[in-house]
Write a protein that binds this DNA or RNA. Structure first.
Lengths: 330, 330
DNA sequence: TTGTATGCGTTATCAT
DNA sequence: ATGATAACGCATACAA
């Protein structure tokens, strides 16, 4: 492909001048025309690496996530990419590795200008803080690294409150929980929201009703069995993601229970399967795609120097009422 | 961050020597030690852009897809990324744009070394051929650009044959089809496989049984309604992806039909929802993640010069029998 | 084995 | 307004 030198030669100007028209700096209208003509003829396209080397900015953002697919990370990728594309940035996606040093590699190599980290796991926590200390642009999605690094999160406590309240208002008093791993900050927040609602409506908290899952469908199916042997048996379940909710429903179906008739089930995320499933799943909607978009905007702001302080954006959840709780809608 | 010059200075050698140890070229063991020590002390990390500029290789591959999430593109991304990561390459993902020129931009900018294009749509077809003519490394996944560009595909005809045969062997003779858009090559191949199976088992083809969907759940629900009014009513359905199959089942449930008792339904893809759904969906498994992996390996082979000719890899499908056809398994 | 010099394709500085 | 030239950080051909 043509370089700036060839364009300069064809247009009969210096490459400095070509660079000027490329970057919209003042040039006489006649030279502008000449240069543009040469650019078109040679189908010239500036070399991003050379530009990056000179400007110290590649216009690429990296995303680190434990998994690149699924109902959660797919929309995040989409949300990020949409924002970046509008700003002529690109997105490199990378699966999280156990080795922390990998985290830093792309940044230090200058392969990316900044890193968006989306992982609830503890992997990389120290690594993230180290990056932050080296002043690398980092934004965390739904993480638990604390105050020092910019983040976009979701009001988990509120979300769990909404779910629990909905069930209470439907008349349930024994409400089981299939939680995400207790070590995640979001789990603790959600459990607090669950307790808030119980307290608010004068119900007592029973620890036996709370089971720890691991976000997989299988764990949902496993934990519902444990909940079913309780006396008295719960009549409603809050699962901390849609997959575990659906796993629970599978378990209920296999034991001959009907949903929502015998058991109301409510999920978390409003991922694609929540609408796809039958019965359609009542769920706490997290604005997943928007989380990605907000993180991307935040990253761009940091890079452009608009945003200098560490900030934490907290997005709100909303309850999506479908059929799985028998609320009579849809 | 430190540069090669600072490392050279600290180690007391020239930067050429540092470059040599970085690239495993012969150096005396003492200088090797000195240089490595300096590298560690300075936490030196080579600058990918400078290296790329010099080597004309960034070690980044681009992926263009119509959508970055969902049961199909998620696993593709995962498959690609896994292979690339092992080879120290990175993956830039980008949503397909209607404008063809966007396709070429990343390549011409040298922001990526090659492009993997995964889109059944006709978008970019001319653009792809143009890229190929300019000798840019391009691999197409499941595309319909013809012989001239390397591709990895799936044996769609065989897949549809397997699905249809399965239903025939279960005793069905009126088998409806909810197809993907007829303009896609894969649709035509699958319809041929469907017809092959009918013919093989002495059944006659009835065009009224074939409806055109658009891969969305809604279209599955829409088209099942049309199939239900036929006389005699079909007793089994082949849908050309899992989402349409599930849409069809929703439609059936709403009309009071039971699956598989009143209607056998079989999907295509074996995406995550196929296992998640209730009843678990019998489906034609496409090795989606492997398609990504194969495409990535092919791209790396092209870049390294191992693969020079245009080749087409065709992966085989397999039938995954679950509950939605009443075959008695699982 | 090691060092020097040059090129990779830009942008930026300093002249003119 | 434009041109010459020096970075940017690395790899490499050629010398020593």
């Amino acid at each position: 492909m043509a370089t700036i030198n060839e364009v300069a030669k064809l247009a009969g100007v210096s490459k400095a001048t070509v660079s000027r028209v490329l970057n919209n700096r003042p040039v006489s209208s006649e030279t502008h025309a000449k240069v543009m003509k040469a650019i078109r003829e040679l189908k010239y396209q500036p070399n991003a690496q050379a530009r990056g080397l000179s400007l110290r900015q590649v216009k690429i953002i990296g995303l680190i996530a434990p998994d690149l697919r699924g109902g959660f990370y797919g929309p995040i990728i989409l949300g990020i990419e949409e924002v970046l594309q509008k700003n002529d940035f690109n997105l490199i996606v990378s699966r999280a590795q156990s080795k922390e040093y990998r985290l830093a590699k792309m940044l230090k190599e200058k392969k990316v200008d900044g890193l968006i980290i989306a992982t609830p796991r503890r992997i990389g926590e120290k690594g993230i803080l180290a990056l932050k200390k080296d002043n690398f642009p980092v934004v965390v999605i739904d993480g638990n690294v604390g105050e020092q690094v910019s983040s976009v999160e979701v009001d988990s406590r509120q979300g769990a409150y909404q779910a629990t309240e909905h069930l209470i208002k439907l008349g349930h008093t024994r409400i089981g929980v299939i939680s995400s791993p207790y070590s995640f900050k979001e789990s603790r927040d959600r459990l607090r929201g669950y307790q808030d609602a119980l307290k608010q409506y004068g119900l007592t908290y029973d620890h036996a009703l709370v089971r720890e899952g691991n976000y997989s469908m299988a764990s949902g199916e496993r934990e519902i069995e444990q909940l079913l042997v309780l006396e008295p048996r719960p009549t409603a379940i809050v699962a901390f993601n849609d997959e575990m909710a659906i796993g629970a429903i599978h378990g209920l179906f296999k034991k001959g229970f009907s949903v929502p008739r015998d058991m109301a089930v409510i999920g978390f995320d409003d991922s694609e399967i929540a609408q796809t499933f039958y019965p359609p799943l009542t769920t706490v909607r997290q604005p997943i795609k928007e989380m990605g978009a907000v993180a991307a905007r935040k990253m761009l702001a940091i890079l452009s120097g608009e945003e200098t302080a560490v900030t934490h954006v907290i997005l709100q959840t909303s309850l999506v009422v479908r059929a799985s709780c028998g609320a009579g809608l849809q």
